[in-house]
Computed example of a mutant assay.
Amino acid sequence: MVENNRWIKFSSHLILILGLAAVIFPIYIMVIATTHTGPALQQPPFPILPGDQFLENMKLVLGEGLSTAGAPPVALMMFNSMVMALGITIGKIAISLLSAYAIVYFRFPFRMFFFWMIFITLMLPVEVRILPTYGVASSLGLLNSYVGLTLPLIASATATFLFRQFFLTIPDELLEAARMDGASPMRFFWDVVLPLSRTNIAALFVILFIYGWNQYLWPLLVTTDESYYTIVMGIQRMLNVADAVPVWNAIMTTAMLGMVPPVIVVLVMQRLFVKGLVETEK
């Protein structure tokens, strides 16, 4: 039995190591590409050791950008992506918290009807809603603006559903105690419901931030001004160059910089994220 257990542990670790290598190897190649010049990456064999052009590549993409590819400096695109990701994340969480709180703790006509109408929107793919949403944004003059990048995407049926399900698990005794103490509905929300939802908010924050950061289709539709391009749009424009060879060192440097904010968010909020998923504090 001991020998069999050792072989099981060895094979399990081997599979994990191989899987980790398969995930890390493309990232390693990307990092290596950020330290070489464009011509060095286009000539075989592909370099597998670091070069000495990392600072030059960073200076190129952060300060100058690639005007030939229609891509502004990466610093500006990362700022736009950060505004969009944070706006979508905070907006979705705020609206979903209030809507789920109203559905659970207030009694008004057609309460469940409105909830199921919100839930049904999950069955509509983005492609079905994208053109009507663009028409509304265009008629309101939201094109080429930060409001246009964020406002049409802040509603979330998924977050509303998750918060509603969590609010239903809160004991009724807490509500009765708050009423006996004379707490108003909003005081009960701020002092009781919101602190209990901390781990859920953290888990949704990570998921929604990555969702907002990786948006491509909607920014592509609502922005024609380069000053509002996001990092994902910039990478795509760098890749699709007509009658020219892609500048791979700049593309890989931009891709690496684009990974940094989501990775930081995941690392900083990892513990709360896991708690929110496994529901340890509910």
Rank of each mutant, 00 (worst) to 15 (best):
I170F: 13
P171K: 08
P171D: 13
P171N: 01
D172L: 03
D172S: 10
D172A: 08
D172P: 01
E173R: 07
L174C: 10
L174R: 01
L175Y: 15
E176W: 05
E176F: 00
A178I: 11
R179P: 08
R179S: 13
R179G: 10
D181P: 04
G182Q: 11
A183H: 12
A183S: 13
S184L: 14
R187K: 14
F188V: 10
F189E: 10
V192P: 12
V192G: 09
L194N: 12
P195A: 06
P195M: 04
P195Y: 06
L196A: 04
S197E: 07
S197M: 13
R198G: 03
T199H: 11
T199D: 13
T199I: 02
I201N: 07
A202E: 14
A203S: 14
A203I: 03
L204C: 02
F205S: 14
V206A: 03
I207R: 02
I207K: 01
L208E: 15
Y211N: 11
N214K: 12
Y216P: 03
W218F: 08
W218I: 11
P219W: 09
P219T: 00
L220A: 13
L221C: 00
T223I: 08
T223S: 01
T223K: 03
T224L: 05
T224H: 10
Y229A: 09
Y229V: 07
Y229R: 14
Y229N: 12
I231A: 02
I231Q: 10
V232L: 03
M233T: 04
M233H: 01
M233W: 02
M233D: 06
G234C: 06
I235F: 05
I235K: 03
Q236E: 10
M238Y: 12
L239M: 14
N240K: 07
N240A: 11
N240W: 02
A242T: 13
A244P: 08
V247R: 04
W248C: 04
W248M: 14
N249Q: 06
N249V: 09
A250R: 08
A250Q: 15
A250L: 13
M252P: 00
M252Y: 11
M252C: 05
T254D: 02
T254Y: 02
M256L: 15
M256Y: 01
L257M: 15
M259Y: 07
M259Q: 07
M259L: 14
V260K: 09
V260I: 15
V260Y: 02
P261E: 06
P261V: 12
P262W: 04
V263P: 01
V265S: 04
V266S: 03
Q270V: 00
L272E: 15
F273L: 13
